[in-house]
Design a protein around this nucleic acid. Structure first.
Length: 423
RNA sequence: GGAGAGAUGGCCGAGUGGUCGAAGGCGCACGCCUGGAAAGUGUGUAUACGCCAAAAGCGUAUCAUGGGUUCGAAUCCCAUUCUCUCCGCCA
């Protein structure tokens, strides 16, 4: 959620920057500012009337003590009147605040000045490319064929037991999963991240805090009877640790890493995008989350970007980094780098990581604050990134490393799998 | 799931209708003391909103959450959530 004071003081800039996300916010902003004026006026009237009630109540108390009960009677009536007025004002204030908040949460985060304009993925800016493209034999096949050839991932079995998008990993496939999780966690810990194992379901307030709710609730699995959501990413529970907190500035940067299953309904996806491991309803991901001082968050974003690059280098996968254009960015992000790995057999780039700075957008929703050098309470900046999501890494590892003898496992990973050739 | 007890500031803990945002202690911050530290000692130490250009200051709200009773609620009543104890079930 955008900060009200920021909207109020930089209206034109907000409109201009949101246009990069192809949003025309002028009318909404105007309404929000108008509601804000009414909110403050109503608040003042309400406070005044409550102040008068409090004063009279105190007087009544004094009169009672002095044994002048009859004198108190008239005052009592006045308080009763004020109470009715205050109740009206309070209801009015509630409805104004509700309306204002309702509008505020429809506004996406303002993109960083470096974000290019654009409508779709076509307009993303490639900022970096690295690694050598594999030279595959002519009989190279996509990962879903390799998965069944080596009997390591069973999509049909998943269909039978659960449904589409919930595969079974078997034998060396399961071990490869476990190896990748440990590889990613160990690397993160070495880079100074603190490991967290979060709950896989969260309450409504947490979904709201990181921005999944209310706009994306159809994308999460929901347990109706307990009003709990299956997490779409560890970002949700791990960032919400700090909901309603005032952290010490000396604790910056706060660096957490968490492995979790991620659950996504992916309503509306279809076709070859969901083939094999490309898009699953349940997958594994190691997520890095940082809480940082506003002055340092972009430097941190670059560090996180570099960290993810080192992982892909160790896995010997060719990758490129994209700066997402306004139209392709998420609702909550101010700047996002996507990492894509080349899937040789599918001959396409697969998104394996998304590293974002949310600035104070999530922090404002969550009321995550810190005290700055002047003792002033301010919102923190939050950042996160996948480091990494497993399925598409597995897809490209299988495809890019296929040989006549089997799948070659990169050296850095082989110490975790316990085998360097999957056959 | 059943029965009972409870929820107060960063933490512990007092407070059963009236200047209570809340005693006391711990912690924390700053100062004094010290060669330095500890001990000692002094001061300060919640959050949000509103008024104000801003600071100071003032007002309002907040004692789990939401309602209610009352001139007045941390205190009484109702609902919800959570915690603990016992019983049941159980990885």
């Amino acid at each position: 959620m955008l900060e009200l004071s920021y909207i109020r003081e930089n209206t034109a800039e907000v409109i201009e920057r949101l246009s990069v996300k192809n949003i025309d916010a002028a009318k909404t902003l105007e309404k929000i500012i108008e509601l804000d004026a009414r909110r403050r006026e109503t608040q003042r009237e309400l406070d005044d009337s409550l102040a008068e009630s409090n004063n009279i109540a105190r007087e009544v108390g004094n009169l009672m003590k002095a044994g002048k009960a009859s004198d108190a009677l008239e005052l009592k009536n006045r308080v009763s009147e004020l109470k009715v007025i205050a109740k009206d004002l309070s209801e009015k204030l509630d409805s104004i605040v509700t309306e204002q908040t309702g509008l505020l949460i429809t506004l996406p985060n303002v993109p960083h000045s470096s974000v290019p304009k654009g409508k779709s993925a076509e307009d993303n800016e490639i900022v970096h490319s690295e690694g050598t493209m594999p030279n595959l034999p002519s009989d190279a096949v996509p990962h879903w064929e390799l998965a069944s050839k080596y009997d390591i991932i069973d999509f049909e079995l998943g269909n039978k037991v659960t449904g589409a998008g919930f595969p079974f990993y078997k034998g060396k496939g399961a071990r490869l999963q476990r190896a990748l999780i440990n590889f990613f966690l160990d690397n993160a810990i070495e880079a100074g991240y603190y490991e967290i194992q979060p709950p896989l379901v969260v309450n409504e307030a947490s979904g709201y805090g990181t921005g999944q709710l209310p706009d994306k609730d159809g994308q999460m699995y929901f347990c109706q009877i307990d009003k709990l959501y299956l997490i779409p990413t560890a970002e949700v529970p791990v960032t919400n640790i700090y909901r309603d907190e005032i952290v010490k500035a000396s604790s910056f940067p706060i660096k957490n890493v968490a492995y979790s299953n991620c659950f996504r309904r992916e309503a509306g996806s279809y076709g070859k995008d969901v083939r094999g491991l490309n898009r699953l309803h349940q997958f594994d991901k190691v997520e890095i989350v940082q809480i940082q001082h506003p002055d340092h968050s972009y430097q941190t974003l670059e560090e996180m970007r570099e960290y993810v690059s080192t992982l892909l280098r160790k896995l010997e996968l060719p990758f490129r980094v994209l700066r997402l254009c306004g139209g392709d960015m998420s609702f909550t992000s101010a700047l996002t780098y996507d990492f894509e790995v080349y899937s040789a057999a599918q001959q396409k780039w697969l998104e394996v990581s998304s590293v974002s700075n949310f600035e104070s957008f999530q922090a404002n929703r969550m009321k995550l604050r810190f005290k700055d050098e002047n003792g002033k309470t301010r919102f923190c900046h939050t950042l996160n990134g996948s480091a990494l999501a497993l399925p598409r890494i597995v897809a490209s590892l299988l495809e890019n490393n296929q040989t006549a003898e089997g799948i070659r496992i990169p050296k850095a990973l082989a110490t975790y799998t316990g085998f360097d050739l999957l056959f």
